[in-house]
Nucleic acid binder design. Structure first.
Length: 640
RNA sequence: GCUGCUGUGGCUCAGGGGUAGAGCACGUCCUUGGUAAGGACGAGGUCAUGGGUUCAAAUCCCAUCAGCAGCUCCA
């Protein structure tokens, strides 16, 4: 007999080697739906797992995180089985469960196409109907290697050889067997509702030098409704794609004749950017920053001193030769701020210096990584460098955190996660700078976060080689994470450039340098904003805030008058004098996602009014123009 | 950079060895219409670029460039 502790503190005795499945039939679980697996002393096992000794048991339910992971992994096996049936020569790579789905990598002679996915999916359905049990078997390493060699599964052989355990486990369903830790669902029939989504190349074990396998991505859920919901989210993501919306709203463009990854900002995109930049500047001035401008290129020696040429060369544009001198297009702004710092002697009384710059930088990104506005080759960072004394570090970090969170909030991001990237224990030599400095910096970063009562995750060994950092990851309307503000302490550049201040003791001390960005890069941030708001920019950012639509051209004059009054109040306004019906003008304005459409006709002229149609709530009826102006001004001020 | 797919008027896309099509947008005219598409006519393309095959290439082949999906990368 074995004693098993069940949920609710109930302990019961069962026959030895009773399976999890059998225990799950016990009265204790009678109100639960069928489990997908069991959890013995927090180790997840198959339903068929025989219980040999006293233990604690809970069930893993299909819709739990753990349950979904099992389901996804089982679906990956199911797919691999289907592929193996259709392409008997397929060599298997790996097939894990991932967020929202699974994939499996195959080495195939023929290249798969989208149509092949449908065939594979059909085969999967067939196998599911065959109701084949997933059976676990264990065998010694050597036998396992032999088995896989015989099956000509060279990748699996490689995997097993990399394992340290003397026994390895396989899972078999019908004619298909695969190396696997498990656990799995009990049968192919229980592999949920799945859909194969996409194809892609993927290097074996993620190494560029390894052969490229064909990866199939799929997703699976316990029921049709959940799958449909997920597919809808994917569709929504596609609809929100900033590349699509950016073109539709005429915000920016790329050009073959311009060059890949180089953004051309159209008037409307530029208008948004301009609002952001103006806001950025005033907010920085208000918080004791000064603002700099510096050139986009500089002599190569500067980049030698900064170390960029050594550490960052692969991401830089090739040098430009002028009058026998090599110049580098800047990939970062920091050396320029340092040159300016060095332009005079600095006293401890001068510090901190908070120097911000909307600095345009150029980076050579490999062609395959470019992606709309999110990954480009020329972009403008909302950069700032803070030069301070060690005793000022914590205050400065708090100030940046304040600013960063304030700005995120203004742009409609209220969810975020904070990470503190620090040195890893045991490999301190990877990092530059004095040990005591690292400790000081880490303490300052931690203290600032604590003082602001911000939750954060400590990320060991995630620091840059030159200093620890705080990274803030924002979440957008669809729950997707974006790289947000970062605050980095830098021990490297002050050393390399030997930048100092004169202390109260009359001797030189090394200055402490902080790099920070709040919104990152204008390009990426705008891409993110587009997707976050699905192109419905909040009023204060909208490139056109109001469009006046005369009912017929008899009212064009009144419409123009209205526009002038709005413009005078600083509201970005247009008039639509096209000779079209009002319905048509409204449709156009709506598609352009303009926050306010003002319809003006006979009634409005008489009453000095405008008929308001807002993006949020549609037709709101007429109000006096003066009142409307107040309303818009309020809303802009509130950044609503 | 790697693998695969794609490249046709400003946009979205159809077609496909015998010298180009639709819708939207654009222009002109008619229409002056009250909350998501009024009508007529018209202009606009060396079918990404360069080679090749062919009597004939936008169509087939190769290369290049660019885009897309991933992989890798992002000190």
């Amino acid at each position: 007999m074995v004693k098993i502790k069940l949920p609710g503190g109930i302990e019961k005795s069962f026959q030895k080697n009773i399976t999890v499945r059998d225990v799950s039939g016990d009265d204790v679980f009678k109100n639960r739906e069928p489990a997908i697996a069991g959890k013995l002393n927090s180790r997840i096992v198959d339903l068929d797992f025989p219980i040999e000794s006293d233990t604690t048991l809970d069930l893993v339910m299909p819709n739990s995180n753990e349950g979904m992971e099992i389901l996804r992994h089982s679906a990956a096996h199911l797919m691999a089985q289907a592929v193996t049936r259709l392409y008997p020569n397929a060599k298997l790579g790996i097939g894990p469960s991932i967020k929202d789905g699974f994939y499996y990598d195959f080495d195939l002679e023929q290249t798969l196409s989208q149509e092949d996915l449908e065939k594979i999916e059909e085969e999967m359905l067939k196998i599911a109907e065959e109701d084949l049990p997933y059976k676990r078997l264990e065998e010694p390493r050597t036998v396992a290697i032999e088995r896989m060699e015989k099956a000509n599964q060279s990748y699996k052989v490689e995997l097993i050889k990399g394992l340290e355990d003397e026994t390895v486990s396989f899972y078999q369903q019908g004619d298909f067997i695969d190396l696997c830790k498990g656990p799995h669902v009990s049968s192919t029939k229980n592999t949920g509702v799945f859909k194969l989504l996409s194809l892609a190349g993927a290097y074996w074990r993620g190494k560029e030098t390894n052969p490229m396998l064909q990866r199939i991505y799929g997703t699976v859920f316990t029921n049709k409704k959940a799958l449909a919901k997920h597919l809808k989210v994917l569709e929504e993501i596609k609809k929100r794609d900033h590349r699509k919306i950016g073109t539709a709203l005429d915000l920016y463009s790329f050009h073959d004749k311009g060059g890949p990854g180089l953004v051309f900002w159209h008037p409307k995109g530029a208008a948004i950017r301009n609002v952001i930049e103006t806001f950025w500047r005033s907010e920085h001035y208000a918080r004791g920053y000064d603002i700099l401008y510096s050139p986009h290129i500089a002599k190569i020696d500067l980049w030698k001193t900064s170390g960029h040429l050594d550490y960052y060369k692969d991401s830089m544009f090739s040098p430009i030769e002028v009058e026998g001198q090599e110049y580098i297009l800047r990939p970062m702004n920091c050396p320029f701020a340092i040159l300016m710092y060095q332009s005079s002697l600095r006293s401890y009384r001068d510090l901190p210096l908070r120097w911000g710059e909307l600095g345009t930088v150029y980076r050579y990104e490999r062609s395959g990584v470019l992606h709309g506005l999110l990954r480009v080759r020329g972009f403008t960072q909302d950069d700032a460098h803070i030069f301070c004394r060690p005793d000022q570090l914590q205050d400065e970090i708090e100030g940046v955190l304040d600013l960063a969170l304030f700005m995120l909030n203004c742009f409609g991001f209220d969810e975020y996660e904070i990470e503190l990237a620090v040195r890893g224990k045991g490999n301190e030599e990877k990092y530059i700078g004095e040990n005591e400095n690292w400790i000081l910096a880490e303490e300052a970063l931690t203290a600032a976060l604590n003082k602001k009562q911000l939750d954060f995750a400590r990320m060991e060994d995630e620091a840059k080689f030159y200093g620890p950092a705080i990274d803030i990851k924002t979440k957008d309307a669809l729950g997707r994470g974006w790289q947000g503000p970062t605050i980095q302490v830098d021990f490297n550049l002050p050393e390399r450039f030997d930048i100092n201040y004169i202390g109260s003791d009359g001797i030189q001390h090394k200055v402490v340098m902080l790099h920070r960005t709040v919104i990152g890069a204008m390009e990426r941030f705008l891409g993110c904003l587009i997707e976050h708001h699905a192109g419905n920019f909040p009023l204060w950012l909208a490139p056109i805030q109001v469009r006046v639509l005369p009912i017929s051209d008899k009212f064009n004059d009144y419409a123009l008058e209205t526009k002038n009054k709005l413009s005078k109040a600083g509201i970005r306004t247009e008039v639509d004098t096209k000779s079209a019906k009002i319905g048509f003008k409204i449709r156009e304005g709506t598609l352009e996602k303009i926050p306010y459409l003002l319809i003006v006709g006979e009634k409005e002229v008489e009453d000095e009014a405008v008929s308001v149609r807002s993006r949020k709530s549609g037709n709101e009826g007429p109000i006096p123009l003066s009142q409307f102006i107040l309303r818009v001004e309020d809303e802009v001020r509130d950044k609503a």
